[in-house]
């Protein structure tokens, strides 16, 4: 039996790595990958607590989250394409027109 703390620590680590990527990178594609990491951190928790409660709800839900991640990536890639066209690149720090 692995105590839940370890799962939580793992998921927190994955989540923070995702955030680290978001904060330090400027490439939109890398942003998408980081977001995937963060989503999967949540999935780890879902699966871990599914086992913890002796219930498959968490695992089923993880499947849906994966599907949702796929949808998100699809839309995200579309947005990145538009970004590329409008700003001649995928550097997110160039797209600053929607401010004050």
């Amino acid at each position: 039996m692995v105590p839940p703390q370890y799962y939580l620590l793992l998921s927190a680590a994955v989540f923070c790595i995702g955030i680290f990527g978001l904060l330090t990178r400027r490439n939109a594609l890398l942003f998408l990958m980081s977001v995937e990491l963060m989503l999967n951190a949540a999935n780890i928790n879902l699966v871990a607590f599914s086992y913890y409660w002796g219930n498959v709800t968490g695992q089923t839900f993880t499947l849906f989250t994966l599907a949702l991640a796929a949808a998100e990536v699809a839309v995200g890639l579309g947005i990145i394409l538009v970004l590329y066209r409008n700003f001649d690149g995928v550097d997110v720090t160039n797209a600053t027109t929607m401010r004050w």
Binding site: L22, L23, R26, T93, A95
Partner: peptide, 8 residues
């Protein structure tokens, strides 16, 4: 700033 990293 409009820079998404800053918001994050």
């Amino acid at each position: 700033t409009g820079v998404v990293s800053n918001y994050a």
